[in-house]
Design a protein around this nucleic acid. Structure first.
Length: 649
RNA sequence: GCCAACGUAGCUCAGCGGUAGAGCAGCGGUUUCGUAAACCGCAGGUCGUGGGUUCAAAUCCCACUGUCGGCUCCA
């Protein structure tokens, strides 16, 4: 053994340099800086990468010691918690084989194959209990570079850890490491093939919770082994966990399926089929108003409206390539006069038919065709979800036909419209530019031109965007917009695609100034997505309390007793002719009961009318959120209401 | 499609081998009320569908169907 004693120099976060003995670990460094830092240290960031606390420092390293006050340390906490969970599961279910256990946003999971047991929710508390024991043991978590990969491989095979063996085989040339769990005597009680990093010991884990069991596939591939997954989370502070659980509860409270029952919004029927939505009057009202708004804004932005058939000879989808590339999502053919017809899965071929119905000149372009087009797509039964994932839906679909020179301007126009829509509904958003994937159609120049136009438009309006390298579809680069709702959840939003495929397949062209035929540039875009998904999302975004301009019922009049009915009816009629959605609740229930009912129905305004109001010819106004607003004249109220509706608040 | 759980009155749920129960909603009365649930009564279910086990099935078993969570976040 010949350890050469030398010094290495490292840089600390404040920029200062420190000279330490070679072989010094981050832990030693922390101890040298201050005993307090050492006690609270759980890891380190070395040259920008999170690492173990016991990582040996190299000359020139930039080091920052991580404590639980650093947000990055949650990664360590959760990753180590995943190991503890896996150790607990294998202790309780010796047949369990471990797959992978990464950290994810808000927590972590671990996948297992347990041949002799299906995990039940009840098992979670048992596993938690076992985890607590492991944590109490304060096992050391030690990084161990595998000296002999072949030997370790055999060991995994002997243990039946086939997933770990497969992973080791895959990473054998990357100096693979195990993370060992050692008890206080130094005995290795558990290990996992893992690249780390991890906490120095299990004692740091205090606040964790197993959340749910779920199914998954090894490597996400449905042809491979079906695994059982446990989702869980861990935090440093109880208050953080409480807050997280509260967020989950809030999401549940806003669930559109739950609110639908309470507010009578939509239904799905076994007799009819899954994924097919029935819009009840309340939600149909909301939709109709959104559609009116949508039409008005599209008209302003130079769109023309079209309607296309819901079924078509499948020849159309052969030409478009949908049958070939999208056939799995299309419903099977029906026989009409001996010819196969299909329910339409997309609106684009139909719009192209309209475009191609006559010769187009460059002077005609751009042509912006818009349709609230209902389409039917086969979605696998397991993915259906309320209104958010369905089999029949109406897209706010548009196709823009233009010249290459017009493309950037058109993208800009779409972004304008999108921005207006999102602001109106109170969403914030973020843009992603998805570029050419590995498999693609068209030429490199076409991709460059199309992607360039998309990016130029984003840049010109100084919109913040991220590049999603290779994230485009095979026939088009695109801009995807991600929405963030009232509680910060992300939703799939508008999308803009420059199609490099259909114009060619359908020979979509125009006559240019040079008198020659040129291929038309075609852009697909949707701003709301589908009415189903958008309205479903809106329900959750607003927690069922639609803003006044959208509310199915905007005002309910509550006469105190039946001698006030005439007055109530008079108010009702005045509001009704002003196009206010108003009703009178003259049920023989107490006023408190009817107020409560209106509150639960989230009706924006309640007008209470009794002796005082009749005498003064006024109304007592109650707002669903602000409560009693006092008495005012009907004119004052109408003005307030009209302003609110005009402002779409 | 696959794995797991679930399906009882309009809604939320209890019952888990002896032939179905509550609260709310609904309907009929009484009450005529001042800012989040008045009182009394009535009615409502072939317990998702089909088959099996049993003297007896909502309850146990099988199949189907639907709902719900998950199946991308790489050792």
């Amino acid at each position: 053994m010949s350890i050469i004693e030398t010094q290495v120099t490292v840089t600390l976060p404040d920029g200062s340099k420190r000279s330490v003995d070679a072989g010094t670990t981050c832990a030693d460094l922390a101890k040298a800086i201050s005993p307090g830092l050492y006690r609270s240290a759980v890891g380190a960031v070395i040259n920008g990468e999170i690492g173990d606390l016991y990582t040996t420092l190299c000359d020139g390293d930039c080091v920052r010691i991580l404590t639980k006050d650093n947000p990055e340390s949650l990664e360590l906490l959760r990753h180590s918690s995943a190991h503890v969970m896996a150790e607990a599961v294998q202790k309780l279910f010796p047949q369990a084989k471990i797959a992978i256990g990464p950290t994810i946003e808000d927590g972590f999971y671990y996948d297992f194959e347990i041949p002799d047991h299906a995990l039940l929710p009840e098992d979670l508390s048992k596993i938690e209990e076992e985890m607590r024991r492991i944590i109490k043991d304060n096992q050391h978590i030690v990084r161990y570079q595998i000296p002999d990969v072949e030997k370790q491989m055999k060991e995994f095979v002997r243990q039946g850890e086939k997933f770990k063996a497969e992973l080791l085989e895959e990473h054998k040339d990357e100096s693979p490491t195990l993370y060992l769990m050692q008890d206080q005597s130094g005995k290795v009680v558990w290990n996992d093939l893992c690249r780390g990093p991890h906490l120095p010991n299990t004692g740091h884990i205090k606040i964790f919770k197993l959340l749910k069991v779920a199914g998954s596939y090894w490597r996400g591939d449905e042809k491979r082994e079906q695994l059982q997954r446990i989702y869980a989370t861990a935090f440093w502070r109880q208050s953080d966990l409480d807050e997280y659980l509260k967020r989950l509860e809030e999401a549940e409270r806003r669930d559109h399926r739950r609110l639908s029952k309470q507010l009578d919004l939509f239904s799905v029927h076994d007799e009819v089929g899954p994924g097919l939505i029935f819009w009840h009057p309340n939600l149909a009202t909301v939709r109709a108003i959104i559609e009116d708004f949508w039409r008005a804004e599209h008209r302003k932005h130079g769109y023309q409206f079209v309607y296309t058939p819901h079924i078509a000879n499948e020849e159309l989808y052969k030409i478009s390539g949908h049958l070939e590339n999208y056939g799995e999502n299309m419903y099977s053919a029906m026989d009409i006069d001996g010819l196969p017809y299909r329910a339409k899965p997309m609106n684009c071929p139909g719009h192209i038919m309209i475009y191609k119905s006559k010769l187009r000149s460059y002077r005609d372009l751009p042509i912006r065709m818009a349709e609230l087009g209902t389409v039917y797509r086969y979605e696998r039964s397991g993915v259906l979800h309320g209104m958010l994932r369905v089999r029949g839906f109406t897209q706010d679909d548009s196709h823009i036909f233009c010249t290459p020179e017009q493309l950037e301007g058109e993208i800009n126009g779409i972004l304008d419209l999108m921005d207006l829509m999102m602001k109106t509904f109170g969403y914030t958003y973020k843009a992603y530019l998805a570029t050419r994937p590995e498999k693609y159609l068209g030429t490199e120049e076409q991709w460059q031109a199309a992607t360039g136009a998309l990016e130029a438009a984003l840049k010109s309006r100084q919109l913040n965007y991220e590049i999603d390298e290779g994230g485009g579809v095979f026939y088009a680069p695109k801009i995807d917009i991600k929405l963030f709702d009232a509680i910060g959840r992300a939703w799939q939003g508008p999308t803009i695609q420059v199609d490099l495929n259909l114009p060619k397949r359908f020979d979509v062209s125009y006559i240019a100034e040079d008198g020659k035929r040129h291929q038309t540039v075609m852009v697909h875009r949707t701003v709301l997505g589908s009415m189903e998904r958008f309205c479903g999302g809106l329900i959750e975004h607003y927690a069922g309390a639609f803003p006044t301009w959208l509310a199915p019922t905007q005002v309910v009049i509550l006469p105190i007793s039946d001698r006030h009915w005439d007055f109530a009816l008079k108010i009702h009629n005045i509001l009704h002719v002003k196009d206010i959605r108003v009703s009178v609740d003259d049920r023989s229930e107490t006023i408190n009961y009817r107020i409560r009912d209106a509150q639960v129905q989230k009706i924006p305004y309640m007008l209470v009318v009794g002796d005082k109001e009749v005498e003064l010819n006024e109304i007592a106004v109650r707002h669903r959120h602000q409560g009693d607003l006092g008495t005012m004249s009907l004119d004052t109220f109408i003005k307030r209401l009209a302003d609110e509706i005009a402002e779409r608040k």
